[in-house]
Design a protein around this nucleic acid. Structure first.
Lengths: 152, 152
DNA sequence: TATTGTTATACTCTATAACTATA
DNA sequence: TATAGTTATAGAGTATAACAATA
């Protein structure tokens, strides 16, 4: 005879299998931090990627689009409109590259310098906010372990 | 007089400012693991989200679409085509919910059980592969710290 | 009234091919 | 021949509004 197993409903979802995976946990944590980042950085009208570009240009005057592309794992075609956007907002300037006529060096304007300083302050705040459950030592350990993965 | 600062080119990119941020490091690590995941899981024709759904259905027989939506932070409309896809592949079955006439309980078929077992084996392997630079203790610590963030 | 599942739709993000100017 | 920057475009991921059926 055939026994049809009863179809029960579940109350709480068991995610323990997924939670054994580093990839799953990394993605969940990334989603939480990203959400806080987007909310708090909206006052500067900056998305995550725009903040990253501004930061790299600020700390690497003369950086090229190709170098940004490589450093942020963004494909060159997708960088065009991003750089155009912060250029039109008067945050960065394009200067001819000193040695390579094909390339263009990016530099922050004084408005860009000001906004980056404010945005970095906001970023530091929201970081502490979204990782408030971690001690300073744990935060340091977490960053070290994550870097071991993506620098490997 | 106006002094124009010389426009130099940079050789290596300094990302140290971004690297002080937990959010940046989490995202970079997530990108690396995701890349390995996509490559290795292609043999099962499973994307990350499809593996996650299969795992939750497998370990929570009778789970509803709404519960999946909540557990994976996927909006209900975006879950429809995903569940339809693995349904058409014969990996899951929809059964009427025992107590709620609006809901539908999801269950793995035997083909789904088989594929999930294989995919979980692949996932465990690629996890070790993409986090090979971590010791077992470090991997455990990393997961614990990440969970403190997204469970906060 | 509220919720489950769904359709339709729009917007963002990511990826590929191909072009131009220069190396 | 190769590389930097760009255009056009396609696909994947994520978002909101609104509907039918059921609670």
């Amino acid at each position: 005879m055939t026994v049809t197993s009863p179809r029960k409903s579940i109350t709480s979802v068991d995610s323990s299998a997924l939670e054994t995976l580093v990839g799953y946990n990394t993605r969940r944590a990334s989603l939480v931090i990203t959400e806080v980042f987007v909310e708090r950085m909206a006052v500067h009208d900056l998305r995550m990627v725009e903040f990253s570009i501004l930061s790299l240009v600020g700390h690497n005057p003369g950086i090229t689009s190709r170098q940004l592309s490589s450093a942020l794992s963004i494909l060159p075609p997708n960088l065009v409109s991003l750089v155009n956007g912060i250029d039109k907002r008067g945050l960065v300037e394009r200067q001819p590259h000193p040695v390579d006529g094909r390339a263009v060096g990016l530099h922050l304007t004084s408005a860009g310098e000001t906004l980056l300083a404010e945005a970095e302050h906001t970023a530091a705040q929201l970081e502490m906010e979204s990782t408030a459950s971690l001690s300073a030592a744990e935060r340091k350990t977490l960053i070290r372990l994550l870097q071991k993965i993506y620098r490997a």
